[in-house]
Nucleic acid binder design. Structure first.
Length: 108
DNA sequence: GCAGTGACTAGTA
DNA sequence: ATACTAGCCACTG
């Protein structure tokens, strides 16, 4: 059984280019619905230059949630914009357009 | 084991 | 819309 860190990493890697996902959604993908906080912990624990597209993970409000890491938040925003993600004047993402659901169903 | 903390989320006022 | 509260799970001291 891989660690949460590994599961989160794998889940985030499934987010395609130009799409974003919420912490809760990633937690669900990782097999721990409700463990959105742990997703943040796992992403914060990611190394620099990782293969994990951590920047495609935002909160349920469509905002970049990085607390105490505004520099990283700006970096994430730039990365997303680089992928074609558009931000509101409030620096929010239109989740209705960008939120990505990788066939998360309970019947499987 | 207990208490504190955290890149979260949903509910209530 | 903002502020406060409760729940969540894993790491750290």
């Amino acid at each position: 059984m891989p660690t949460l860190f590994q599961r989160v990493s794998a889940a985030v890697k499934t987010i395609p280019y130009g799409k974003v996902c919420t912490y809760g959604q990633v937690a669900l993908m990782a097999g721990s619905p409700g463990a959105a906080r742990q997703v943040g912990w796992a992403l914060a624990s990611l190394p620099r230059g990782t293969d994990v597209p951590w920047h495609r993970v935002i909160n349920t409000k469509g905002e970049i949630s990085l607390r105490g890491r505004m520099d990283a938040a700006d970096f994430q925003k730039e990365l997303l914009q680089s992928e074609g993600v558009v931000f509101d004047e409030n620096e929010k993402v239109d989740l209705d357009v960008f939120r990505y659901f990788p066939e998360i169903t309970n019947h499987g």
